[in-house]
Design a protein around this nucleic acid. Structure first.
Lengths: 317, 317
DNA sequence: CTGTTAGCGCTTTCAT
DNA sequence: ATGAAAGCGCTAACAG
């Protein structure tokens, strides 16, 4: 690989001039400009970004640590993030980490000058981050650090409003263990019931259950006394687990029971689409990149992103 | 961030000694060793990898350009690659690119000293790569450059053998347009038939079709004269597209028609598992990282990876 | 065993 | 307008 020295020698100018031509920071005599450009072309010279980074003290690399339990969900994040990052000439450094320890050591390995900033996505365990160049995205808890969280209360409330508008007034709710958002979801759920003058039936609600199928089983066992015609689950994965179980009980979806996912649908071919709250990965990525570019404003501090209600297009099915 | 200068000053030794203690390359008097370690601890010093990279002329970054049309398939690659790369203290720089131009410009942007090597994954368009630090993985064509390809002939032959062993002797084959492997698949298909003394019926074979559903429709329309009880499709996505279409025609899967995916199954919950050829992402990643570490041997040059036959566990369903 | 010195490739004052 | 020189943080000869 040729260096700036090779170019300056060939062009008959100094390194400084070459640098100036390429960065366009200062005026340069047209003659030397052409000479430099010609030499650059001839040698196929590309400035070494590592040397530039050493000087500028920034690499343009953003570390992304994916801690999601469901790896397939990361794709949406990564695609949106990469798109926005590359548009701003930033690079995405990818790491996967399943445990707190893994996240911390990944964080450690990326914090030695390689990454300007670091994103941690989807961690469902307590993290105690001190560094102010770290953003927590959709993580369970957050201390003083920057974070983007999803508005789970809003999601639950929106979901219930929709279900009620569809004539579903007995809404069951199954919340998996350790999500850390269970209280917010319950709040939204209750608000929606209140606003619709519907009673709250605690037997329809399963909080922090280790197994959603056990919870559902219990729900179904009591189906004689306990009528329900809608079921709120945490995410698409849960939904796909729950639907066959309902069908095995001769409950048709969505006719008998409408299943609603509180966190996005995968939109995979072959999977029947169900109503869901979806979070715009694009909005999230835009927000993040915006913050990365102008760190001055601390707008990101505990930013809450609201999801959109997505209902399946019945005509298409 | 503290530098090696800060450490050397605090420890009362020279930069060189600090460097030696940290890299452990040379003997150092225990006293100064301790002094350095103490200073490092106190200042929370971490060597700047960018400065190290500038000197060593290598960053430990591996660029990964995902050109797969089906983004969800990238997850498997990325997860396996990241796991193996991080085990060898290498970093994964992620890019997505959908077109030839996008791939080329991504390649360009990553080839300025940032990445030691670059992987291009799943490109289905012609690429003319010159650089010898680029590996093509599961790409349609490859020139003189390093590449890992999947053994599509073997996959098709294995698939047919399995189907025939299951009593399916009328095997239809639908190959999407532009895969670039159609000929290899056809070869494997024909070989399997030959070895089982079965006739080749060209009406069962749809090569380079723009729409698999149109091809299937044609197949189904001729179903009176054209019996088939197995269907080979390119990948899981195709399979999930095709199965509802079959069912809509009152063909049950797999009883009437066994659908077989030639490139992996997604293993998502809620999706019925079908028999498939799966490629071990782990084996692939291991192979790649092995090559990255010892570039001397050119074993990778046009390496062909064989898939494994995966059959659904009928007892579990 | 350890300090001095010379770079890795680039940018940027500071003179000229 | 442009060249010389300093320096980003680190490593490795080369002397002591």
């Amino acid at each position: 690989m040729s260096t700036i020295n090779d170019v300056s020698r060939l062009a008959g100018v100094s390194k400084a001039t070459v640098s100036r031509v390429l960065s366009g920071t200062r005026g340069v005599k047209e003659a030397s400009r052409q000479a430099v450009l010609k030499a650059v072309e001839e040698l196929n010279y590309r400035p070494n970004v590592i040397a530039q980074s050493l000087f500028s003290q920034s690499t343009g690399c953003i570390g992304v640590i994916c801690a999601q339990d469901n790896i397939n969900q990361t794709t949406g994040y990564l695609y949106a993030l990469e798109k926005h990052l590359s548009q701003h000439q930033k690079h995405l450094l990818l790491r996967f980490a399943n445990t707190r320890n893994d996240v911390m050591s990944a964080l450690d390995e990326l914090s030695c000058g390689l990454c300007d900033d670091i994103l941690i996505i989807g961690a469902r365990f307590p993290l105690n981050i001190q560094q102010d160049n770290v953003i927590l995205v959709d993580c369970s808890v957050s201390g003083d650090v920057n974070s983007i969280q999803f508005d789970h209360e809003f999601a639950a409330e929106t979901a219930c409003h929709y279900l009620i508008s569809q004539g579903r007034r007995q809404i069951a709710l199954i919340q998996p263990d350790g999500s850390g958002f269970a209280d917010r979801v319950l709040l939204g759920y209750k608000h929606a019931l209140e606003k619709n003058f519907l009673p709250f039936n605690r037997n329809l609600v399963f909080m922090a259950c280790t197994s959603s199928s056990v919870a559902l089983q219990e729900l179904l066992n009591n189906a004689t006394t306990l009528n329900f015609n809608a079921l709120l689950v945490a995410d698409e994965q849960e939904a796909q687990r729950v639907i066959p179980q309902l069908q095995a009980f001769n409950k048709s979806v969505p006719d008998d029971i409408m299943v609603f996912s509180l966190a996005g649908s995968l939109q995979l071919p072959g999977i029947p689409t169900i109503p869901a709250i979806e979070y715009s990965m694009d909005a999230m990525a835009a927000r993040i990149v915006g913050w990365l570019n102008e760190k001055t404003q601390n707008v990101l501090d505990s930013y809450v992103l609201r999801g959109d209600l997505i209902i399946p297009d019945v005509r298409r099915r």
